[in-house]
């Protein structure tokens, strides 16, 4: 990236309420709860604003000053009813402005979600797409392809809370894109459950996919779905997060795969009848596709081997295996 020209121009006094905040990517980060102000604010409380904020004017100087740098200072000042601030004027070209934004926020863009937000932010503000594709994306370690930019911009349309989760859990671009295909209302409803469920990236994705399929299959709305008695019971039982997550996930799986669930239940019943005290493990193909039973065990001496052999060749085992295989 080129070295930016130092914005050393004249100092003026600007009205805090009259500033144009259009370039405030920091404000976007604030929406996501990613604005760390404690350190700065405590220093401002002690020493006040020492550095002038950075602003630029349109060529004819008739419009409000465009705030370029100093959003946190401005917010601090506004909160305290300070109506005017010293500002340093600058005149950056659009390219220089864009590079300035990148320089300022580049290090903060630590996840796909934040990169998406940033790229959408600059594209939304009308910066030349060639600049974004050829300078910004490569600087962020991305290939400057229009389709890739489109994908990131699609991710930026996710609800803010979902974007926050995507950032916190460091969702990949693919995972974020998948979420963009889900009903928005479902995403918002699920994210509200974050306090009750331990939502890992993969679980969030799994729940979204499964519920979205159930909604489509059964022709239900998101609200109708979450009004189900069983769901309310699980979510309102007051259990710890881990238990609620396990119960919720298992219920959703049952709804998503009713036939497999009922077959598994039947197979488990047969297992319980014939093999609950057997000295070996019995497994079957949970997809129900392959007709085969796997029997395994570990022995540490010959006596155990004798017992195992006897148990395997017993009538009870044969009957149990026959019963299991008859389900395939």
């Amino acid at each position: 990236m080129d070295q930016l020209p130092h914005p050393s121009k004249e100092i003026s006094i600007v009205e805090t309420e009259a500033l144009d905040l259009n370039l405030g990517f920091s404000l976007k980060l604030r929406e996501l709860g990613l604005w760390k102000t404690e350190h700065l604010f405590s220093s401002l409380e002690t020493s006040g604003i020492l550095e002038p904020i950075l602003v630029a004017y349109e060529q004819d100087s008739s419009g409000p000053a465009l705030l370029i740098d100093g959003f946190k200072r401005l917010m601090w000042a506004r909160d305290r009813g300070i109506s005017h601030l010293s500002a340093m004027d600058t005149s950056l070209s659009p390219r220089e402005l864009l590079l300035f934004l990148l320089q300022k926020h580049g290090n903060e863009l630590t996840s796909c979600a934040l990169i998406a937000l940033f790229l959408d932010f600059v594209a939304e503000r009308g910066f030349d797409s060639h600049l974004i594709l050829n300078e910004i994306m490569p600087a962020l370690g991305l290939q400057g392809h229009a389709k890739l930019l489109e994908k990131y911009r699609r991710v930026a349309t996710l609800p803010v809370k979902v974007l926050t989760l995507c950032h916190k859990k460091d969702f990949s671009l693919k995972r974020c894109i998948n979420l963009t295909h889900q009903p928005r209302q479902l995403l918002e409803r699920l994210i509200e459950l974050e306090g009750k469920l331990s939502l890992s990236a993969s679980l969030f994705q799994e729940l979204c996919d499964a519920i979205s399929d159930i909604l489509k299959r059964e022709g239900l709305s998101v609200e109708e779905f979450f009004q189900r008695k069983e769901i309310i019971e699980i979510l309102e039982a007051g259990q710890d997060r881990a238990t609620t997550t396990r119960l919720f996930r298992s219920y959703i799986r049952k709804l998503r795969n009713p036939l497999l669930t009922s077959y598994q239940r039947e197979l488990q019943k047969i297992h319980k009848t014939y093999f609950s005290s057997a000295p070996f493990h019995v497994k079957w193909d949970e997809t129900l596709e392959n007709r085969r039973i796997e029997i395994s065990s570990t022995v540490t001496d010959i006596e155990e081997l004798r017992n195992l052999s006897k148990a395997i060749s017993s009538e009870k085992t044969k009957k149990g295996v026959k019963e299991l295989l008859s389900r395939f």
């Binding site: 489509k216 997809t287 596709e289 392959n290």
Partner: peptide, 8 residues
């Protein structure tokens, strides 16, 4: 959205 399983 149907119930589906993945085969070999």
């Amino acid at each position: 959205s149907a119930e589906l399983v993945l085969g070999d």
